[in-house]
Design a protein around this nucleic acid. Structure first.
Lengths: 315, 315
DNA sequence: TCACATATGCTCGTTTTGAGTATATATAGG
DNA sequence: CCTATATATACTCAAAACGAGCATATGTGA
């Protein structure tokens, strides 16, 4: 079987491509899943694929019958202790974030759009702090910290929890999606952490579990997207061709999981010249008719000239 | 996940780990290389490795005898047409950015630190715009754009060049390192682009070439680092334990490739409470003695609470 | 016609930047 | 010792960006 001590090992590696495919529909963030919502679309990288991205496109479009638009790489990992099966085969997982618009056409069998807050109920702060956070999650985190063997460990655990979940006067930071999930995993509060021990009961406050480490990948994708909407005009990949400013705002809020100040949001969008009026307006919103806008495609090029935070010198 | 007839193909994939190991020494950005500066430290990911990161650590510390400090993943790719050899074996390259301090101890055989501007001479704007940029690079880019078959292609090429290289009134954006390199590659101006055609002469204005796509990976690392120093205190990974504010500034300038405004830089560092005084000062700088500072380790935790750019609402 | 809902315009005080000017304290050379 | 020359550090000032909120416009439906 093995050719040589070294090269034989190299060959028994498989690469898997995984997609976090996101859309926003009527103000809710959606993620494409397969297998009753338990997995993200994925498939092996094969010799026939031109590149990693094209391999991903093949798999996802085949599994879900939904085209991928914008794609960006998320993360690659191969931790041995995080995979479900105990096989000797080593798998490198390469994950991508893909943005699209949800189509009216039904996706393929077993493929389905899901609200991403089904998996992360503690991440949606649009209607205020979710009650399960102070009522269920924080007490469990406290118990976990208190269960530490020594004082330094206790303090470290509690400090990380406080920062990640915005406790002890630390404000809520919507970008820390991955840190929060990892903390809950470390504290054995999410379903995935129990799997290897056999048991499987988890409180609904900790969300739906997924296969293998797919929920971790989803957390990575959400975190990346929440960070990115702040400095790159990626929301537009998720919007229809024309939209009102409130619809745009609702989409951003859906992704960020928090409400934004309407007037200031509009000022921001206008001063950055991200959109242009179409001339028409809609009355569907109930209330004074809203102007319809479209994305100014010019900014895709211009915005490459992003902002700096270094106090540059003139000379 | 899925086991099927195609699974036989999955096994002929190898994973390679590649490091962009960076240090800053007396105001110059340095990158660790092997093989006379033509390659980055790298090695195959094997079954024995606990994780991708630990595999990388093994390889790099073995090849260079230099310990790795801070590590973050850069990018994974597997483009078929970019690899040097024509073998059927498919390689997935997983690259990392690592930050450290250059040690006085000599690195291992064949391993050597290099100034990264040897590979990207057009990226160093600390002494003003490098003359080779207007004199050599821009004319070649213009010729490349003019050589397009049709008008749209010409305009697209020129617009991309103008944005990437700060022409036509577009300011210089130090973060676009990768875009610039990719453009030069596409225009067949860098050495790597000629390799498959056999010839190999390139003007020194286009920098030293590297093996395979290592220079592209280096460009990715520089771009990431230039972006990151603006919102995360990573420079300190590259600084000695105590330093003056000017030394800190020089390090930032080395990485960014541009000068910063001294007074405003200090204001920024102070108001963010990144450093604290050690109490002593040094006169080595020639001039009024400078206070010595050290990094405030507390910020590593606090800074997790990063800034937002969304106009949040209070309710 | 009125209550209600959303849209949109505008104000105002606070912070954060960008760009300097001014002053302090060393060393090196005559 | 004095001076030129570095660098270090403190302050100023106007412009731009941000956070919060008030006011007004213009629809729909009871």
């Amino acid at each position: 079987m093995r050719q040589s001590a070294e090269s034989g090992q190299r060959h028994s590696i498989a690469a898997e491509l995984i997609a976090v495919l996101v859309a926003v529909t009527i103000g809710q963030p959606r993620v494409m899943t397969i297998e009753r919502g338990q997995s993200l679309p994925s498939g092996p990288f094969e010799l026939g694929h031109r590149s990693l991205q094209s391999g991903l496109r093949d798999w996802v479009e085949h599994q879900t019958r939904h085209p991928l638009g914008y794609i960006e790489q998320l993360y690659t990992f191969a931790d041995r202790d995080r995979t479900a099966n105990g096989s000797a085969q080593r798998v490198v997982s390469i994950s991508y974030l893909a943005l699209t618009r949800e189509e009216q056409a039904a996706p393929a069998d077993k493929a389905a759009w899901r609200n991403w807050y089904d998996y992360f109920p503690w991440e949606d702060h649009r209607a205020g702090v979710p009650p399960a956070l102070p009522d269920v999650i924080v007490p469990h985190l406290k118990a976990w910290a208190d269960g530490a063997d020594d004082r330094p460990t206790h303090d470290d655990r509690w400090q990380r929890a406080a920062i990640a979940f915005g406790l002890d006067g630390n404000g809520w930071n919507e970008e820390l999606v991955l840190q929060r999930y990892e903390l809950l995993y470390e504290a054995a509060l999410v379903g995935e952490a129990h799997r290897r021990q056999g048991e499987n009961r988890t409180l609904s406050a900790f969300g739906l579990a997924m296969a293998a480490d797919h929920r971790r990948i989803l957390a990575t994708g959400i975190a990346r997207l929440r960070a990115k909407i702040k400095y790159r005009p990626v929301v537009f990949e998720l919007m229809p061709s024309v939209f009102t400013l409130l619809q745009l705002q609702r989409s951003v809020e859906a992704l960020a999981g928090r409400l934004v100040h309407k007037q200031n949001f509009r000022r921001l969008v206008e001063q950055q010249e991200l959109v242009e009026e179409t001339g028409s307006s809609t009355t569907d919103t109930g209330g004074r008719p809203a102007k319809l806008f479209r994305f100014r495609h010019g900014v895709l090029a211009e915005r490459a000239v992003a902002g700096t935070k270094l106090p540059l010198s003139r000379a």
